[in-house]
Nucleic acid binder design. Structure first.
Length: 1180
RNA sequence: GCUCAAGUGGCGGAAUUGGUAGACGCGCUGGAUUCAAAAUCCAGUUCUUUCGGGAGUGUGGGUUCGAUUCCCACCUUGAGUACCA
């Protein structure tokens, strides 16, 4: 009986499918199976995107590893969940649809069919009854559901978790937002409960949107014009799109965003609780980018330093020592406790009775004014009794404010209370006389305003990780895009600054990235004040400061920061040294650990840690700074202008997004005629005429877009439809939970299932998802955990990144030669065309690797000479064919010249294990190779050059698993993929090597089939004397294989099997006691052959259900040891000695050995080291 | 630049609580079998050598009786990230 792997594999694959061998039950549902007593184990692969190209041998690597582990865990008595599915929304199907009109669902279904066939033939033990497809409405129903949950949640920093938005609304209406500590948009205005309750519904919705975990915002996004969509940061590589390499530009768009930044700290902390690779954790840490430091506010000096000295600085204005935080909270307090008159006037002003927007108790500079219309710069003060005692101060205050172009009008309490109509009339009159500053550009460009910072600006806030170096600040740098730049720049510097801003804006992101070394910047002419020394600090702008990080401004400490140092050197800015005993004449000193402060006032002598703490304390006392932690992690844009993705369960009323209630889900993707954006620039969904959306309360009805949008709000939904779809990572961010209860129609997954399976025990997939899928999934898991949907807040305990399998390309060298057209008088004048014709007609000449290496060192002249001497016949034949002549009268070197060699990738299937090219197959490969000639060294075969490259159609090095399974079988494929090397490593595929594992399987087969006819022959005599060696082999193997699987060292267990089979063959072992457990060891790796032999051994149950053999150390006990005897650490010979021999006896035995004497050559050893059971070392 | 990973025969790779470097396989060489080829089997295969031996795990140092393994410095390759204050 021969090892007929094709037959065996087909037989068992059919058996497993028919018997649902790998179907796993949730205990609550399958108590009868007895699974409830078994511990659970969840082994997961990253599900594939089913591309049109199908699988190549690199794809199943991780699946094979996880399958081995899953099968092993079943042998160990675990209830193993090992599912598979498809990440089936994605760009390629859509692009194919755009080109061909084929619906992506059809393409996707076809691709999935191919994938399934390919996966099945490798013999995976997946439970296909739990398959998920992200593009299936029954699945994306729940993706939409999660989106709604996110919309209805906000992040409470006090409880450090996501909470329901209804809680927030309750708080707003009972106490406003003053005490709400949430992760939300910047610049949220503060409001009271009364304010909130007075807001109209739209205003309330706008405010809530600033708190929701998924929110709509005008964001600057990465727009890819070629793909017609936005891309996430991790979808961009080197400034171009990851898919297709198209350029990407920044663009402002209204998009859905996910407030992942709320989870930055928990995502970081969570890394310590999971067993993922260090490099992957490191990537995520970098991506989150936590930095701890301080935020510091530098007041802006109103006049340049020189004028300040002249004594023109105004009193009370923007000097250091004031506390904006205190003033702000004071203003809030005053707002909350208005006087009667103030309240009465505010009631009138807020209702826009005067057609102008007023603010109450607003901070202007250092002053809190009662009411202000910022647009018209009109201040209205209501004075009580107290003002009678401070007329002078008030006058000064008015003067200062009026210098800032404010107009101040004052009313007495009595006036307001007695004649409010008259007061309003006066205000109205003033308003009408003042021009709106928005429409008056002259004003803001006037000389004076250039010198005087506008009101409301108190200082520049910076973020620094080195607050300890604050005494080293010698300038400040703002990003060119910083809001303050135009406001603070002096007239003299305006031209220079404007020119610089323009130049920076022109440079693309890529240019800026490529050109890091060039230092550029401009001085604004303005100065800030140092918080401690009160010295004026020049304010510069420079493009090394990024608008998008921190506050877009830095305090520059040239002595302690490389970039600040370079900038200071370049512009001749002083570089004060604040480090004790450090020379900064050549470079900045950025070594935190060895910092000792000097020239730093109260910090002198302190180290980094102490100084930092002290500075932050001092700044907090002054109200000019505080300890702060910054994260690089940005909120994730969640809208895509694509067709083939999840539709949002969203419509708009009055411009505000509304969720469609969960009971109406799924919102199915509508049909479109064209998959391109509409003529008006809407996303492809704008083309949809009919929607599988609903009539209110009447689920599932098809409604036309017009019908939907024009319907009356009472009967139908009414409002505009959301036309964007969700990004690719939406569906993949929670699929691992769905597998736990994949066919549940009423829930995301049942509580019982979620509680039983908890999380993924082992997750295997590529490291390319480090900052995409793996971060987003952790984010959603934490969110779902907060909401009580899932029981754990990390979804995968252990994660392994499988390395990539690379291709081994085969390269031949093509000799390029051309006619010497000047000499070929019978040719046409059009030499260009002739040359092209020639190169088409001429027979190509290919050169072998060794010949190429030989020829390539010769010069062109030598090469030509060599070719003429050795290959004149071949070349002349090519030329003659071209010229249609028998014999040209020219000598060979008069009519052609050699150009160069070009590398041609040959299909790897034409090359054998010895790198020899099948020249016939190669000639038939492409029509222009038909008459190819091959040059090789005499007596040599034609060998190709090998090169390891990524597997790609382009390089003709793609190997299809279908062919491998047909030729060698799935078991060979599985073993070989594991045998190639460590799972995590990148390694080249070379089909030639598979013969090794294939012949191993044949040898294994032979162990069970003896004699001439190879009949099944296994003896079942009880273990006898002769079984000792075989038992030793078996138990050695059990031990090693078990260790290897648990350490994911699958490559070494394959060689262990080889050793075992080689040994057992040599021992002529035919005993069932040995051969039966051996099969169980091998079955996770080569399940088909194991199942077949197991069956032949007389078992009726599948081998996958039996228990793993137990290692028994007693079989490995030895009585003697081959001691390596080394001299000065070098092993010289081996001596067999009993293991129970004492140290002294060993030494004596070794010393008396003749080889020892030989080595020593009469010298006396200085020392003899004896480690019993290990080694003897003699030091001479 | 920074972070992480890794450097061992012709090739993939094995060996770490420090103890026989090169397991296992490919390829290669020789032999058996065969009309022949494939397949199969046997022997050899780190380099060097005067056949005694000697050298050897990216380079240079160190610790140790003993280092592929630990420490320091450097070089190279791959991956990620990039003016992150």
């Amino acid at each position: 009986m021969k090892y007929n792997f094709n037959e065996i594999e087909a037989k068992w694959q059919k058996y497993w499918a028919e018997n649902q061998t790998f179907k796993v039950e949730n205990p609550a549902l399958g108590e009868a199976e007895g699974n409830s007593n078994k511990p659970k184990y969840y082994v997961l692969d990253m599900f594939p995107y089913p591309s049109g190209a199908g699988l190549h041998v690199g794809h199943p690597l991780g699946y094979i590893a996880s399958d081995i582990y899953a099968r092993y865990k079943r042998h160990q008595g675990f209830n193993v969940l090992h599912p598979q599915g498809y990440d089936s929304f994605g760009l390629p199907a859509e692009q194919y649809a755009i080109q061909t009109g084929q619906h992506p669902a059809i393409t996707t279904a076809e691709n999935i069919k191919t994938y399934r066939r390919q996966l099945d033939q490798i013999g995976f033990s997946f439970d296909w009854s739990r398959e998920v497809r992200t593009s299936d409405p029954s699945y994306y129903k729940w993706t939409q559901w999660i989106f709604i949950q996110l919309f209805n949640s906000w992040y409470n920093k006090n409880t450090d978790k996501a909470e329901d938005i209804s809680e927030l609304i309750k708080t707003f209406s009972s106490e406003g937002n003053r005490h709400v500590n949430a992760v939300c948009d910047d610049n949220i205005e503060s409001f009271s409960a009364e304010d909130w309750n007075a807001f109209d519904s739209i205003k309330q919705q706008q405010i809530l949107l600033q708190y929701r975990l998924t929110y709509l915002a005008e964001t600057e996004v990465n727009w890819c014009p070629a793909l017609g969509t936005v891309l996430a940061n991790d979808e961009i590589v080197n400034g171009v799109s990851e898919r297709g390499g198209h350029p990407v530009v920044r663009k402002k768009m209204t998009q859905w965003s996910m407030r992942i930044s709320a989870y930055a700290e928990r995502l970081l902390q969570g890394l310590d609780t999971i067993d993922w690779t260090d490099s992957l954790k490191e990537s995520q840490r970098n991506w989150i980018g936590k930095s701890v430091g301080a935020s510091v506010t530098f007041p802006i000096l109103s006049f340049p330093a020189g004028e300040e000295k002249a004594g023109t600085k105004r009193p009370g204005y923007m000097t250091g020592g004031n506390n904006s935080h205190l003033l702000l909270s004071h203003a809030k307090e005053m707002r909350a406790n208005p006087t009667l008159a103030e309240a009465a006037l505010w009631e009138q002003l807020r209702n826009k009775n005067l057609d102008a927007k007023f603010r109450q108790q607003h901070l202007i500079g250092d002053f809190i004014v009662d009411f202000v219309c910022l647009d018209k710069k009109l201040i209205v003060e209501v004075d009580g009794k107290i003002h009678e005692t401070q007329v002078e101060e008030d006058a000064k205050r008015t003067e200062i404010l009026e210098n800032d172009f404010y107009k101040v009008i004052r009313f007495k309490n009595e006036e307001v209370l007695g004649n409010i109509e008259g007061v309003l009339e006066k205000i109205k009159k003033e308003l009408s006389q003042r021009e709106s500053i928005k429409s008056n550009s002259e004003l803001s460009e006037s000389h004076l305003s250039e010198q005087i910072p506008p009101s409301g600006v108190r200082g520049i806030e910076v973020f620094t990780t080195r607050p300890d170096t604050i005494f080293g600040v010698s300038f400040m740098t703002l990003a060119p895009e910083h809001d303050l730049v135009t406001q603070i720049t002096t007239l003299e510097q305006k031209a220079e600054v404007d020119a610089y801003i323009l130049a920076t804006a022109k440079r693309s992101e890529r240019d800026r990235m490529a050109d890091v070394k060039t230092i550029s910047g401009a001085f604004t002419g303005a100065y800030a004040e140092h918080p401690f020394t009160k010295a004026p600090i020049p304010i510069w702008i420079g493009d090394y400061v990024l608008a998008g990080y921190g506050t877009g401004a830095v305090m520059s400490v040239p002595c302690g920061d490389e970039r600040d140092y370079a900038f200071a050197k370049h512009f001749n800015i002083p570089i004060p040294n604040i480090f004790d005993g450090v020379d900064i004449s050549k470079e900045a000193f950025a070594d935190k650990a060895n910092t000792k402060m000097a020239n730093s006032d109260f910090l002198n002598g302190m180290n980094y840690k102490k100084a930092t703490k002290r500075v932050i304390y001092e700044l907090e006392q002054m109200g000019q700074g505080e300890g702060k932690t910054n994260y690089r992690l940005r909120d994730a844009v969640f809208s895509r202008q694509r067709y083939w993705g999840e539709p949002f369960p969203v419509y708009y009323m009055n411009g505000m997004p509304q969720m469609i209630e969960a009971e109406h889900l799924p919102i199915k993707l509508p049909e479109v005629e064209k998959y391109l954006p509409t003529e008006t620039g809407e996303p492809p969904l704008g083309n949809a005429k009919k929607w599988y959306w609903l009539q209110y309360g009447n689920k599932g009805e098809i409604v036309s877009k017009e019908e939907f949008e024009n319907s009356s709000p009472s009967g139908r939904l009414g409002g505009a439809l959301e036309l964007n779809t969700m990004p690719g990572w939406a569906g993949s961010s929670w699929y691992f939970n769905r597998y736990m209860d994949a066919n549940n129609n009423s829930e995301f997954a049942s509580k019982e299932a979620l509680n039983y399976w908890q999380d993924v025990d082992l997750y295997i997939g590529g490291s390319e998802h480090a900052t995409g899928h793996l971060l987003y999934s952790r984010f959603w898991q934490k969110f779902l955990f907060d909401k009580g949907v899932v029981p754990v807040d990390e979804f995968a305990k252990k994660l392994i990144n499988q390395g990539m399998i690379l291709g081994t390309s085969a390269i031949v060298y093509r000799l390029e030669y051309e006619p010497n057209l000047n000499n070929l008088d019978n040719l046409n004048d059009d030499s260009q065309a002739e040359s092209e014709k020639f190169s088409l007609m001429v027979k190509p000449i290919f050169i072998s690797k060794s010949q190429y290496e030989r020829l390539n060192v010769l010069g062109v002249y030598e090469l030509k000479k060599y070719l003429n001497e050795n290959y004149e016949k071949e070349i002349r034949k090519g030329l003659n064919d071209f010229m249609n002549k028998e014999n040209s009268h020219f000598s060979i070197d008069e009519i052609y010249h050699v150009n160069k060699f070009t590398e041609i990738h040959a299909d790897v299937s034409f090359v054998n294990a010895s790198d020899e090219l099948d020249t016939e197959a190669f000639k038939n490969w492409r029509p222009d190779f038909k008459g190819a000639q091959f040059i090789r060294e005499e007596g040599e075969t034609f060998k190709v050059k090998r090169e390891v490259e990524k597997m790609s159609k382009r390089w003709f090095n793609v190997v299809n698993p279908d062919n491998i399974c047909e030729q060698y079988g799935a078991d060979s494929l599985r073993l070989y993929e594991m045998f190639l090397g460590p799972l995590e490593q990148y390694k080249p595929w070379n089909t030639a090597g598979i013969t090794g594992v294939h012949s191993f399987l044949k040898k294994l087969w032979k162990l069970y089939h003896q004699g001439e006819n190879r009949n099944f022959y296994v003896t079942s005599t009880p273990p006898s004397e002769g079984l000792g060696e075989a038992l030793k082999t078996l138990h050695k193997t059990i031990k090693k294989v078990q260790e290897d699987i648990e350490n994911f060292s699958f490559n070494t267990s394959v060689s262990t099997f080889m050793i075992a089979v080689n040994e057992l063959t040599a021992q002529k072992c035919t005993n069932k006691e040995i051969l039966e457990p051996l099969l169980i060891l091998i079955s996770p790796y080569a399940p088909h052959i194991a199942e077949e032999l197991w069956n032949q051994l007389g078992h009726s149950e599948s081998i996958s259900t039996v228990a793993f053999p137990i290692f028994d150390a007693s079989h490995l006990v030895e009585s003697s040891k081959n001691y390596p005897i080394s001299f000065n650490g070098k092993m010289r010979f081996i001596m067999e000695l009993p293991l129970d021999m004492s140290k002294d006896a060993i030494e004596a035995a070794v010393m008396s050995h003749e080889k020892t004497q030989e080595q020593l050559q009469g010298r006396k050893p200085k020392k003899v080291i004896v480690v019993p059971g290990k080694i003897v070392n003699i030091v001479g």
